[in-house]
Amino acid sequence: MTDPKTAARKVLAGDIRAAAALMRGLDDGQPSCRAVLKELFAGAGRAHVVGVTGPPGSGKSTLVDRLVGEAREEGRSVGVVAVDPTSPFSGGAVLGDRIRMGRHAVDPGVFIRSLATRGSLGGLSGSVFDTVTVLDAMGKDLVLIETAGVGQDGVKVASAAHTVLVVLSPGMGDDIQAIKAGVMEIGDIYVMNKADKEGVESLERSLRLALDGRPGRDGLPRPVVRTEARSGKGVADLAAALAGHRGSLLERGLWEERSRAMARAAFEELVEAGIRSSLEKKRASDKAWKSLLEGLACRRLDPYAAARAGLRRLLR
């Protein structure tokens, strides 16, 4: 492979192939690719990172396709990270979000990457942060992250984005589901997609009830926007709301704060992953680890003493 500095320079210049290869290597945990990330990291940090979450089928991918279209009309470049779950049985995944984004496939100003969660504990895989960093380093103005908002993945996306869109649609008690999944806390903008369908009035009622006029995480008001992603109706309003949120963050000095929170989330994700993998290694093959467990089993050690010794070993 080319040396890290050269590879980093290519990515910073927007080279699509170099960026794709880097994302792949980071996803697979290749040390040589981490060396490239190190070189380009300081050059990233300008993109507006937007999380798009909500129940499966609510129209997130279709909406992302439309938002990409809006941004391109304004001449802004866009990166998309589309996350789907890894099958717990096989470790494989079918990643199908691109189906809805076909018209942007050959636009050099749009880079779309599909990621599987790869069994990351408690949500977003560390690869999402890496992939966003690479897209950002490429100079993308806008980076959209799509995750399915059931359970942890959807909630965790909030920590990886400046702005979070929660996408709901009428029917099938989605509203109730969404509230249960905890997405009522994390949204900066609420989207009622499929506004062409029956039930949008009742969705709006339960949504407003659940939001209860409470502001979002930065104390900013949380707009509710109706869209029809399939026809494109309302998408311009949504794009305006997005720009509005970004503007408010910048105006009130909250952008910096949000960026710091994103950095912390990425940091903690990596630290946790490191601890987990170190634990697995010790568990599998460390002699001292086994003797700690032995001491515990015959009650020579109490659980706290054993855990303290274990932690020291883990972090050595």
Partner: peptide, 15 residues
């Protein structure tokens, strides 16, 4: 696509 997933691969399906 599903068969490859079941064999542990990541499959991107574009429609």
């Amino acid at each position: 696509a599903r068969a490859l997933r079941d064999a542990g691969m990541e499959v991107i399906y574009t429609g």
